[in-house]
């Protein structure tokens, strides 16, 4: 991986790693401006790596606390619906699937958050078309697990999420009786046991 750039085996915060013109600062690093040059410096303790696109990143190897992720704009998250009213659904974000730059060496996938973050899906953000005809009760139910994308850091308490894409929406849901539902089409899910069809904004199965 490392191409003729002498990187230390372990980088500590504040340790200069590379010069900026050829290399770029990746996750776990920041740049400092000198009068003469720009230096990429480690900002977390970890293992520095040079990637194919000449970006330098520092990843943490610790398995107990691998990542410290916060929801960012454009990152895909998994959230559970906690409250529902005709204007919006309140959710708690419990996992982040990346989609941003995979900061802190997330890269490969996501992480389950140590703390949950509160978010809202407003009625106009449920789907991209026919926004004025969206009914929240026909899109989500309390307890559903939703895949959504962060559109804004929001106000003091809520992240603003959107499910306006084919791949976004309800991924795990249970019927009134408590049986798991499976998707039929983009707006309906059926119970595996009783066959009852319920309405949801369904995410396209991968």
């Amino acid at each position: 991986m490392s191409q003729n750039l002498p990187l230390p085996p372990i980088a500590l915060p504040g340790q200069p790693l590379a010069q900026s013109p050829p290399y770029a600062a990746g996750p776990g690093t920041y740049t400092t401006q000198n009068p003469t040059r720009t230096v990429i410096t480690a900002s977390v303790a970890g293992i520095p790596r040079v990637h194919a696109d000449k970006s330098v990143s520092v990843t943490r190897p610790s398995p107990s606390h691998p990542l410290l992720l916060l929801p960012e704009v454009a990152s895909t998250v998994l959230a559970r619906v906690t409250r529902l009213n005709p204007r919006q659904a309140t959710v708690e974000i419990f996992a982040i699937q990346g989609g941003g730059d995979g900061i802190h060496g997330g890269g490969d996938g996501g992480c389950v958050c140590e703390h949950t973050f509160q978010g809202v899906i407003r009625a106009q953000d449920v789907r991209a078309t026919e926004k004025d005809r969206i009914k929240m009760l026909e899109s989500f139910r309390v307890g559903d697990v939703v895949r959504a994308v962060v559109i804004s850091l929001g106000d003091q308490s809520n992240y603003y999420l959107s499910t306006a894409s084919n791949s976004l929406g309800v991924v795990v849901a249970h019927s009134d009786a408590g049986d798991p539902l499976h998707p039929i089409n983009w707006r309906q899910m059926a119970c595996a046991r009783t066959g009852i069809v319920e309405e949801r904004k369904v995410a396209k199965p991968i």
Partner: peptide
């Protein structure tokens, strides 16, 4: 703080 993996400019 370094053990927590919080990004910092220096220790």
């Amino acid at each position: 703080i370094a053990d927590a993996g919080i990004e910092c400019f220096d220790l």
